[in-house]
C-alpha cells in the first residue's frame, strides 16, 4: 500500500509497507518562506501521533513539525542540515524530514487524503 495523507497542521505522511515518510506540504513551505534551518530527531526516538517530530525555521520564526502518526524514527533527511532550502524547492519529495516505523496503521484514518486536503487549504485562503 502506498498512499499520501495530510494533517490539518500541514504535515504529509506517505506510507509504504510499514515505513511512514513525513514532510510538510507545499502550502506549508510557501507560508513559511525561505527555510534556513531544520532540526531533526534522533534515530530510535519513539514518537506518538501529534508529538513534535522536527523543527523548521524560516528567517522569521521557528515552527514545529508534528508526527502525523506514531512510530519509531528509523531515518532522518540529513541532507536538510546542509541544504534546508530543499524544503522550499521540493517539499513533497526531496524535502522530506523523517521516516518512521509505523506502529498503528489505523491512525491514518484520522488524516485527510489529497483531495480533502486540497479542499481544506482552499478554504483557508
Amino acid at each position: 500500500m502506498s498512499d499520501i495523507r495530510f494533517t490539518k497542521d500541514h504535515e504529509w505522511v506517505l506510507v509504504d509497507g510499514d515505513t511512514a515518510t513525513i514532510g510538510i506540504s507545499d502550502y506549508a513551505q510557501e507560508q513559511l518562506g525561505d527555510v534556513v534551518f531544520v532540526e531533526l530527531p534522533d534515530i530510535g526516538k519513539t514518537l506518538e501521533q501529534g508529538d513534535e517530530a522536527a523543527v523548521v525555521e524560516s528567517v522569521k520564526a521557528a515552527s514545529e513539525v508534528y508526527a502525523p502518526v506514531s512510530g519509531e524514527v528509523i531515518e532522518v533527511n540529513e541532507e536538510l542540515e546542509a541544504a534546508p532550502g530543499r524544503v522550499n524547492e521540493d517539499a513533497m519529495g526531496e524535502g522530506w524530514f523523517v521516516k518512521l516505523k509505523l506502529t498503528d496503521e489505523d491512525e491514518l484514518d484520522d488524516l485527510m487524503d489529497e483531495a480533502a486536503y486540497a479542499k481544506y487549504i482552499k478554504e483557508l485562503d
Binding site: G33, D34, V36, S58, V59, K60
Partner: peptide
C-alpha cells in the same frame, strides 16, 4: 506587509 512575493531572504 510582512513580506512580498520575493520573500524575506530575497528582500533582505
Amino acid at each position: 506587509p510582512v513580506q512580498y512575493p520575493k520573500g524575506v531572504l530575497g528582500e533582505h
